[in-house]
Structures are given as structure tokens and as C-alpha cells.
Amino acid sequence: MSNIAGKAYAMNVITPIPWWKAIWQHAAFKFVVRFPSNLKGLINLSLIHYARWTIIGRNSFPHLAPSQPKEDLHYSYMMFESNFNGSWDQYIDSFSFAIPEGLDLFWRFNIGYPKSIPLHGFYNYIRFNQIETDHFYNAYPCASSNDVKSATHLYDNLKDFTETSLELSDEDFEQAYNALLLDNQQYLGCMEAGPSLSLKEY
């Protein structure tokens, strides 16, 4: 089992949804895609690298050969897979406090969904339906999602600075350098390996 790779945690949750309500759930996601302001809470959380919701129709499980028995399911299923920074507790807490309406929209039609508040029921729901990861790979174990984004900004700004500053006099260079630091102070900071999490937080 390996839900953690450096600073990233891999979460897999699969939940049943009545097939006719899956159509409504599709519509809810289409609404979110069309009006991305509904994702503002997720963006503000800023601890997610990538996350996705996939609705699997009850007749849509891959069937590759006659030797494989066909699934015969009452429900469709929704698979949620997230790559985030921090521990399980921190993630669920942040989700529940920051975007309770968003969570209710994303899981609204799923069977047994208790709503995101109060927190305890939501904790139990996610834990009950979570599947452990067997192999998890992260290209940058020492970096958070914010590190990746800030590094990209800093890298671009540093290249621009280099193109315009090297021919300046020493004093003008110092002034330009200080301005660069002032403008990019939010992108600076050294990275290290993430803190160890206790087994409880896996």
C-alpha cells in the first residue's frame, strides 16, 4: 500500500449512484464545466495537483473477451481520484470547510452521501468507500502544487530579468535585482522532503 509519494497523497473513492440519477450528476458536472466559477473554491484550496470524477455507467465496465463474465449491476458508480498535498485529515477538513456546497453538488445523487456538514458523517463516508493505492508515483516528491506553480512564475520572471539586466551598471543592477525580489517574494522559498505522516494519516 502506498497512498503517499513525497508531499502528495493519492485518494481513490468509488460510490454507487442510481443509473437514472447518474444522468443528473452528469448534468451537474456539465454545469460546473460551463460555469467554472463553481470551481473557485477548489482553486482557492490550492492543495490539489489534479483531481477527477468519472461516472461509470452500470453497463460501462470494460468487457474485453467472452471468457470475462459480464457485470450485472443495479447501480452506476462514481470514481473520485485526487492527488493532493498534506494528510488525509487535512484534506477532508479543508474540503468540507472550504467548499461544502461544491461537495454536495459533486456527490449529491450518490447513495449514502451524508452531506459534507457535519464533518463526522462525511469522514466516515469517504473512509468507507476509499480504496488503497498499490503503487503511487509523483514526479516531484519534494514539491507541493503551489511550489510547482510558483516555480514556473519565478523561472519565467528570472529569464526576463536576465535578458534586460546584465548590461546595467552595478548600481542599476542592484536596484533592478531588489525590484525583482520585491515582485517575486511570494514565489521564493526553499523546498525540502515532506514531513513524515503517522500511519493513522495514511
Partner: peptide, 22 residues
């Protein structure tokens, strides 16, 4: 159904270089 990108979509080599430079 819904893919949320909370990072950026640059090539990994560029992300890694940016992290190194940072």
C-alpha cells in the same frame, strides 16, 4: 466526467527545471 487541474500543464521537464531554479 470532470477533470480538475490545480497545477499547470507544462511539460514535466520544464516544471522540474523551474523547481530546480526556484
Amino acid at each position: 466526467t470532470l477533470f480538475f487541474n490545480g497545477s499547470n500543464d507544462q511539460p514535466v521537464a520544464e516544471q522540474l527545471k523551474a523547481l530546480y531554479v526556484k
